[in-house]
């Protein structure tokens, strides 16, 4: 398959990318290309210009400071999955990054490209919502920070404007335990349903719980009733199972369905994956 023709510009810095975006209205940013290139090939996207930001060194890498991980937008899934800082500070994120696609995809796909694309079957948005991540956005008016809850606005839709560049994803690190578990589509490895859980435990009881489910809805859903059922409880297997059982009700009425899995099926299978994610997170939270 061939994409429609487009102009190609390579940016050497964020400042240069900013100028190129201003000069080419409607241009698409290219990072690793593993979300954009399939869309170009299917001609679901046909921008006049593509701006390649893939070689901007300042956008790559993981740093740890002030209780949060700062992950540059061009950091690959392979780098995140193998990072000791991510594994110890935000286990669910390392786990999810290691479950994306396959090794060759993880070598080139980036966290920034992934979340900017906002595919509802993608893994990282679910985890980043559960972990209360924030997104650093470079815009013509300066830099701003957007919460995960505000960033993902719909199917393939985010808070990024036409002239915005996502530069980093910031994830609170440490504290409790987190986990991500998914039911993968057997060919694409996208999530049919994916569940992320983050728990903190003090004195044997759960002091905070954060749970999100992706793949089933246009935007990953926070599971408020599951979270409420866990708060203040000792995290026994029975308590976790009872809380997870309510997860299907947190997905709303508008479920995604396709030839592979109906909306009803996704709702029915959701508690199973929420339960598994909670059990793993509880073990890590200690």
């Amino acid at each position: 398959m061939f994409a429609a023709n487009f102009e190609y510009h390579r940016a050497g810095s964020v400042a240069e990318a900013r100028q190129l975006l201003a000069a080419h209205p409607g241009a698409k940013l290219l990072a690793g290309g593993h979300s954009l290139i399939p869309l170009l090939k299917l001609r679901l996207a046909a921008p006049e210009a593509v701006i390649d930001i893939g070689r901007i060194g300042e956008l790559r890498g993981i740093s740890n400071g002030g209780g949060a991980l700062r992950i540059g937008a061009l950091t690959t899934h392979a780098e995140i999955a193998s990072s000791d800082a991510v594994k110890s500070g935000a286990a669910a994120l390392a786990e999810a990054a290691g479950l994306i696609g396959d090794p060759a995809v993880r070598n080139r796909g980036t966290i920034g490209g992934n979340v900017a694309h906002a595919d509802p079957a993608s893994d990282l948005p679910t985890v980043l919502i559960a972990l209360d991540a924030t997104f650093t956005v470079n815009s013509p008016d300066g830099e701003r920070s957007v919460s995960a809850a505000d960033f993902f606005q719909g199917m393939m839709a985010t808070a990024l404007g036409e002239h915005d560049i996502l530069t980093a994803v910031n994830v609170p690190a440490g504290g409790g335990g987190s986990a991500y578990v998914k039911f993968s589509h057997p060919a694409s490895r996208y999530a049919v349903v994916g569940a992320a859980a983050s728990l903190t435990v003090a004195g044997g009881t759960c002091t905070s719980a954060s749970v999100a489910v992706g793949g089933a809805t246009a935007v990953p859903a926070r599971c408020a009733s599951v979270e409420a059922a866990l708060a203040g409880q000792a995290l026994s297997a029975d308590v976790i199972a009872a809380a997870a059982a309510a997860a299907g009700g947190d997905l709303g009425d508008d479920l995604l369905g396709d030839v592979f899995a109906s909306g009803d099926y996704r709702r029915a299978v959701t508690p199973v994956y929420v339960q598994r994610a909670l059990a793993a997170a509880a073990e890590r939270a200690g």
């Binding site: 290219l30 290309g33 390649d52 696609g101 060759a104 070598n107």
Partner: peptide, 27 residues
């Protein structure tokens, strides 16, 4: 498959595996 799922196009770029059907030559 030409959709980055089957792996028939796998090559090494600077020693690291990549799917060459989902990589532009310019990259």
């Amino acid at each position: 498959c030409d959709t980055s799922q089957c792996g028939a196009c796998t090559v090494l770029i600077d020693g690291v595996s990549a799917k060459s059907c989902t990589t532009l030559a310019v990259q």
